Simulated scan of single mutants.
Amino acid sequence: MSIGQADERALLEGMVDIQRDEITRILEDLDDEEARRKLVPSLTTPLGLVKHATFVEKVWFHSRVANVPRQEIGLPDTVDESFVLAPDDTVESVRAAYLAACDHSREVAAAHDLGEEFPWHGKQVSLRFVYAHMIQELARHAGHGDILVEQIRAARQSS
């Protein structure tokens, strides 16, 4: 069955997984120096985007849906901190951490119904909302990554 003919849950899971794949593609064909390259004034780098996507997976699924305090997971306090690279972060280590976070997110989500609700900024949101939010969040960052990688590849050709 294609994703276009799937039931609601399979559709949402499939769309999130498509965007997760797009996030992993950000680092495809980049070496560690290129992946750390800062091309915009913010903390956004290709490697930082994937590290941030790991943070997003953990905030929404590992903490909020699984009801595990952020401190137990070791999440930074601010979104900006989620883009900060450690000296030992590499393309391989950040990619592996992201893939592991996605696997755990799938396991967490599988234990909950789409209509089940979780706290978010003093409100309740459903797992359905979490999936929709993740689709838009990951798609936006995958697009950011596409632009950065395009600039890096163009610089390769001009040198």
Results as ranks from 00 to 15, higher is better:
91 V>I: 10
51 K>G: 13
95 R>Q: 12
77 D>P: 08
136 Q>L: 05
145 G>P: 04
103 D>W: 02
72 E>T: 09
57 E>G: 09
120 W>L: 13
134 M>Q: 11
62 H>D: 00
123 K>L: 08
81 E>S: 14
42 S>L: 02
48 G>R: 04
151 Q>L: 15
130 V>P: 02
120 W>Q: 05
127 L>R: 01
52 H>Q: 12
59 V>R: 14
48 G>T: 08
7 D>F: 05
119 P>V: 07
144 H>D: 08
142 A>G: 09
85 L>W: 12
150 E>L: 02
101 A>R: 03
25 R>F: 10
63 S>F: 06
117 E>Q: 12
106 R>Q: 06
121 H>C: 01
56 V>P: 01
20 R>F: 00
67 N>L: 06
102 C>T: 08
120 W>K: 10
73 I>C: 07
24 T>P: 01
20 R>W: 03
141 H>A: 09
49 L>Y: 07
117 E>P: 02
32 D>N: 14
39 L>W: 02
72 E>W: 01
153 R>I: 04
83 F>W: 12
93 S>N: 15
144 H>E: 12
74 G>V: 06
44 T>C: 11
60 W>D: 04
18 I>E: 07
82 S>G: 04
40 V>N: 02
128 R>A: 05
8 E>T: 13
53 A>Q: 15
41 P>Q: 06
43 L>W: 10
105 S>E: 01
25 R>C: 14
2 S>T: 15
51 K>W: 13
120 W>F: 15
45 T>N: 08
52 H>G: 08
114 L>C: 10
58 K>L: 09
118 F>S: 00
99 L>E: 15
27 L>G: 13
36 R>S: 01
151 Q>C: 08
27 L>R: 12
73 I>F: 04
105 S>V: 02
24 T>D: 08
61 F>E: 05
98 Y>D: 11
140 R>L: 05
64 R>C: 11
114 L>A: 10
94 V>P: 15
114 L>S: 10
136 Q>C: 00
154 A>F: 00
26 I>C: 09
153 R>L: 10
55 F>N: 13
80 D>Y: 05
56 V>Q: 07
18 I>S: 04
70 R>W: 01
128 R>N: 06
33 E>L: 01
53 A>F: 12
107 E>M: 10
108 V>I: 14
12 L>Y: 04
59 V>A: 09
132 A>H: 05
78 T>N: 03
10 A>D: 10
7 D>W: 04
